[in-house]
Design a protein around this nucleic acid. Sequence first.
DNA 1: TTGTACGCGTTATCAA
DNA 2: TTGATAACGCGTACAA
Lengths: 343, 343
Amino acid sequence: MKLGQATIKDIARELNLSASTISRALKDYPGISDETKRKVKEVAEKMNYRPNAIALSLRQSRSFTIGVIIPEVIHFFFSTVISGIEEVANSRGYNVILSQSNEKLAREISSIETMLSNQIDGVLVSYSKETKNFDHFTKLLDQGFPIVFFDRAPAIPGAINVMVDDYQGSFDATAHLISQGYKKIVHLAGPQTLKISIDREKGYREALEKNGIRVNPAYIITCPLGTLEESKELVTEALNTLPDRPDAFFSCNDIGAVGAIMACRDAGLKIPLEVGIVGFSDWQFCSMLDPQLSSVAQPGSLMGARATEILLDIIEKKLDPKTMEQTLILETKLMERDSSKRF
Amino acid sequence: MKLGQATIKDIARELNLSASTISRALKDYPGISDETKRKVKEVAEKMNYRPNAIALSLRQSRSFTIGVIIPEVIHFFFSTVISGIEEVANSRGYNVILSQSNEKLAREISSIETMLSNQIDGVLVSYSKETKNFDHFTKLLDQGFPIVFFDRAPAIPGAINVMVDDYQGSFDATAHLISQGYKKIVHLAGPQTLKISIDREKGYREALEKNGIRVNPAYIITCPLGTLEESKELVTEALNTLPDRPDAFFSCNDIGAVGAIMACRDAGLKIPLEVGIVGFSDWQFCSMLDPQLSSVAQPGSLMGARATEILLDIIEKKLDPKTMEQTLILETKLMERDSSKRF
DNA sequence: TTGTACGCGTTATCAA
DNA sequence: TTGATAACGCGTACAA
């Protein structure tokens, strides 16, 4: 109490009453005279009394705080998720404490530890790219600690996950390219440690197959880093070296798609006339590019909001993780723009 | 302790020792036998003991948590700031609790209240566009509560601010346009409630004056909303109605600049040949646009990091807000790209 | 080398 | 209608 924070005791002393009376008066308990209530509230106001949430937490073994562990805040998608989380948490009276793992397993683990030390009531997690072992989560889940995973869902039985329909989004994007007459579609894939990468690739594969197009393994190019430079380089290489030159690129993220646009432009190819391009995530900038980039929109804010609602419901015992639906899948929406519309 | 959190007492019972001995053993206090220490640590490990930070906070009147109040997480710039904040706070052993005001004064106030209730040790603030009265901050500052403002600095005497050199950044951008031969430069200004808007406009004005160009009031267009649509509309209108048609647009933010690009393109104007455009903030997407957008880069992550260092130093009494430098100004950097380079 | 007692701010329980 | 007491988990001054 670096500042002269008045406590219940201070008010009690001031009014020559006991602490318990003050506590009750402030909370409008029955059995306290209106006169006393009035006086207590008046003095509390005057002394600038503010309840100490820490003391409450200690007493109730309940902090009304949830933790959020996220790879990186600066990813647009994650920032929209946080926004949704913060919104719901706040409106239900919870604080949000935030930690980024920076895609490091070690930081992910230490973040959780710190948060647990701080007695968080539950945690929302999107795990790091480095995380291949989930013991630090399963241990907690086994103890009944509320965890909800979002976006990146681990292969843990019993874990609650909120994610978008990566498979369907990917399927739609690929089918769209096919419907626009593209036939030699390359997929820029993400790291195979992430389920979302695998699902997105699967959607791509099946869309091709359903449309009678054979999947060419050489057309699936993994971008482990996910940077603009990387995809630009890989796409340039693909354009130059693949025996059967691709006429479309479906990237598992928007950055990769921008790299593809640049590479194609450098190669003198017209978009969408000669090459079609679709990204995934529908970042803000997609509609600012030229050509405007088609992309699969993910409802980030909604994902954050839903995940938080579920977490809070579990915390407040309105929902039982044992019996509830384990996975909530949110719909994606293909935003068809200039980069892939020939007709 | 929803889960079987072991406490010091549990360990004490297990070993038939007193709680204080356990406490001391765990912290390697002198005057505890090595044998006891060993046993205590072993059992602590086995029982999965984790110190209760809440109890510590209560005892020490110190939470090792700082609050961050920000208008919106999804602004790229703010997300980079958060990243910097989180980085420094974490490395110095502090938690970060986050709240977005959504540009609402009421939420800003209630967020602070909640955070104070939670005994935060200090707070980092970038205030909302609605905030014109700063009583809720001054009251705290007067009590000696540590606050550091970043990006948006209020006109409060004694407040500590970390910001970028908006004036200079703006000056540089405008001077750059002039050096490229643009003469009729429009400024897309922000809401005048924000000091950054005023400073940016000032930089624009003075760059013109220093170069012998008269400031034309009709060339200063305020964009209160800051949306893409708004600036696109206003720029289109400017191109159509201003008697002396502008040949350049310097926007106080990148979104506005993108709107300008679109409006100019729709008007059939070639960029940068006929119109030059420069934005402010240097969002990720600037270099992905076509033409690539020139913009004034703000060191967001650095700003967050520096602001946090200062706040923690104040909290830890390494710095005294009364005697220290009140304002830290970080340098901007003009990123010259295609949208404004004629030569 | 270890134990006892107290306090951080709050509230539930029991007593008056 | 109000008060005294204990407890949440921990650290520490003091005692043994």
